[in-house]
């Protein structure tokens, strides 16, 4: 039973005082992601055939595909990184990066795009799928 004169935490507190702290100085020091971590969906517009399967299976309704307008878009703030779209994609256009998205503020949205929204267009049927210059794409950000 508890003895009123023992404070077991005193020793721990004193030992911690000389031991190395457990915290990391984020954001100056970032722990690398684990190999299998699910971070962020990456899209390769060159192989997509607009079959819309990813949109139909997305439980969060984060992916929108329009076959007529040739648009593929994803709301990263809705995406729950469940990996289902990657699993169902027959063309392997989708992949899961183990790097999480960088934090964004509303000011980070480019050209009227909402932060976290990414959109790819195929401008004309003959182009091989360069990302639309207006859209906020990973390429545009880099």
């Amino acid at each position: 039973m508890a003895n009123p004169l023992t404070l077991p935490m005193v020793r721990r507190s004193l030992r911690n005082l000389v031991a190395r702290p457990a915290t990391r100085k984020y954001p100056y020091e970032i722990r690398p992601s684990f190999g299998g971590a699910r971070g962020k969906i990456e899209f390769d517009v060159t192989t997509c055939n607009y079959c819309m399967l990813c949109m139909r299976r997305c439980p969060a309704e984060a992916i929108r595909v329009s076959r007529e307008d040739r648009i593929w878009s994803i709301e990263h703030l809705r995406c729950i990184a469940c990996n289902v779209c990657v699993e169902v994609c027959s063309k392997k256009s989708l992949s899961m990066s183990n790097q999480p998205r960088k934090p964004q503020t509303p000011a980070d949205g480019v050209d009227g795009q909402r932060p976290g929204h990414e959109e790819w267009h195929l401008a004309a049927p003959d182009t091989t799928g360069a990302p639309c210059p207006d859209a906020e794409t990973p390429a545009a950000k880099a």
């Binding site: 507190s13 911690n16 005082l17 031991a19 702290p21 915290t23």
Partner: peptide, 11 residues
């Protein structure tokens, strides 16, 4: 700072 170190934080 000292409290943080006792809790093994940097503070």
């Amino acid at each position: 700072r000292v409290s943080a170190r006792m809790q093994s934080r940097i503070g």
